[in-house]
């Protein structure tokens, strides 16, 4: 399912980055160096920095809470705990959505559709993830050590938000492809790249087919958080069908951290991964006209602790959104 938009623009973005991410190559609006950041728990720290992120965005675009019609927010914790508590602090209507790490594009699609239908004017989309809160929910206690696999990804700590509006700006949201669930019966919850690569590929191909485009149409194709090995799988899948490798393809998991840091293993993951890379790298590059057309493919692994413990497979989903400089 591919949609076209006429008057949906990204007006302003904000980013807050935490430990490990701050040693990466990009600049962020605000940073913190400690997982507690003077709070009692990791969760409270995540909520605090999420609120900070939204406040920075409101400050940057000089808008008050009354000017915003809706916030669409997502995070990794059960029942969207972080989003719910963040929204305690704002007097703005709220949608909580969850498609795991594909939520970023899901939010952009929802926001653009609402704006394009002229029902709303200003919508904030926001995402947040935190390495330790995710680790303790999905895996083991924080202090519990085990030998890690090379293909594991390392959840990004940070939050990011965008203001989507019908007011013209440099960056227009032009098209979007809503993905379908893909399941190749992968059961290893540590191997996110293997789980998500086929769904990213499927959404990518659907997008090209439905709009009748060539991959070269885009200056940059950016997938969400496949990691070092997932990125190679994506490229191999493309090679198998097209006979050549993509030269304009990048994966945000491989960009967000310092590449010499061995502790981050195969790269970043988590909802905020692609959102932070988009806000701090892709959008500035688009404003400076280095990239004119960018395709974002956010990839999500739809697992829960219960499904993994019951040895069920991990379904995955990817949504694509294309941005153009006007």
């Amino acid at each position: 399912m591919t949609l076209k938009y006429n008057n949906s623009y990204i007006n302003e973005v904000s980013t807050v980055a935490g430990p490990y991410v701050i040693y990466g190559p990009f600049k962020y609006d605000e940073t913190f160096t400690d997982y507690y950041d003077n709070e009692e728990t990791f969760e409270k720290c995540e909520i605090k920095n999420y609120i900070k992120c939204i406040n920075i965005l409101l400050g940057k675009c000089n808008k008050s809470e009354n000017d915003i019609d809706l916030i669409i927010s997502s995070d990794l914790l059960n029942q969207l705990m972080i989003s719910n508590f963040m929204m305690n602090h704002f007097n703005i209507p709220f949608f909580g959505v969850y498609n795991a790490c594909a939520s970023f594009c899901e939010e952009l699609i929802l926001a653009s559709t609402l704006i394009d239908s002229k029902k709303m004017n200003n919508i904030i989309t926001a995402t947040s993830s935190n390495n330790l809160t995710a680790e303790r929910q999905y895996r083991n206690p924080v202090e519990y050590g085990y030998q890690k696999k090379k293909y594991q990804t390392f959840t990004v700590t940070g939050s990011a938000s965008c203001l989507i509006s019908n007011k013209k700006s440099n960056i227009k949201i032009t098209t979007a492809t809503i993905g379908k669930v893909v399941d190749f019966d992968v059961k290893d919850s540590l191997n996110m790249g293997k789980v998500m690569a086929p769904s990213a590929y499927e959404t990518f191909i659907t997008h090209l087919k439905e709009l009748n485009l060539k991959p070269e149409y885009y200056d940059l194709i950016l997938t969400g958080d496949l990691g070092k090995y997932g990125k190679t799988i994506f490229n191999e899948l493309f090679y198998k069908n097209f006979g050549y490798y993509l030269s304009n393809y990048e994966d945000s998991a491989c960009m967000i951290y310092d590449n010499n840091d061995k502790r981050v293993l195969a790269g970043g993951s988590g909802i905020a991964c692609i959102n932070l890379v988009t806000n701090s790298y892709v959008i500035p590059q688009m404003i400076s006209k280095k990239y004119k057309r960018v395709l974002l493919i956010a990839t999500g692994a739809l697992m829960s602790v219960t499904s993994v413990n019951q040895k069920m497979s991990i379904p995955s989903i990817s949504h694509a959104v294309s941005l153009e400089v006007i």
């Binding site: 090379k150 191997n191 293997k194 086929p198 090995y229 799988i233 191999e236 899948l237």
Partner: peptide, 18 residues
């Protein structure tokens, strides 16, 4: 693409643990 074909691609890509 079948599950086996996909697994074959992944096996080639995945790193060997020492």
């Amino acid at each position: 693409m079948t599950k086996e074909e996909y697994n074959n691609i992944c096996d080639k890509v995945m790193p060997k643990e020492s």
